[in-house]
Amino acid sequence: MKPVSIDKLRIQLGSAVILPDVSFEVNGGECFGLIGESGSGKSTVLRCMSLLFNSWSGDIRIDGTSVREMSAFERCRTFQMVFQDPYGSLHPRHSVRTTLSEPLKIHKLDNHQQRMESALTDVGLPVDFLDRYPHQLSGGQRQRVAIARALILEPDILLLDEPTSALDVSVQAEILNLLVRLREEKGFTYLIVSHDLAVVDHMCDRFAVMQGGKIVEILPREAIPDNQAAMPYAKELIAASLKYERTVE
């Protein structure tokens, strides 16, 4: 149950300012959503936090410790990431067993078999899937394996980068329910990026609306149904999304 605080996160490459100033706080055990149009910098925030992208200024603290000061191993044990595209996030030539045992070998953990089996059981896959290759799995199964890979190091925080947008609707619901269940069981802090308001409505306690690298407004989930957003952009985004949902229904 570790809280995350992002303070004045800024990316400037040459004269181009990618993220001007992003600050928000996530409480321990909370599910926090980042929502916005394409290119608004949602995924970039996650990439900065995980140090996959390193040229940023500002401060990202997890439970009071800056991510830059953490050792690489400590960082891996604190948070893990689930990627958008399950077809690209699993190594095509590694079996599920290899995918799951690599992090255990790197961190020199014991009981490999037991840990791998429990991770697979946690995400609702049978244990004999260990010897399968990604091309023998469906999209939803791949995403479950990706989640199992994130769980196997027992992190406190999961960064979810549009975890369902590459999946079709029925599979989306399964994965979202799985994520909700895991959070209830293990008390993760979630930081979830999405462009789908329905996903945020289903998962998150609070969410931030982003536009052009800035946080427009931070709202609680309860604000969605009757659109209590104060800022015009956030109001427009939620209204458009609600209208779309009504048309679909």
């Binding site: 996959l52 891996c76 990431m81 690209g88 190594h91």
Partner: peptide, 14 residues
Amino acid sequence: QTDYIAAARLQGAS
């Protein structure tokens, strides 16, 4: 630049 390499880096692989 693929996600599986990013995932390996996040797992602390050298």
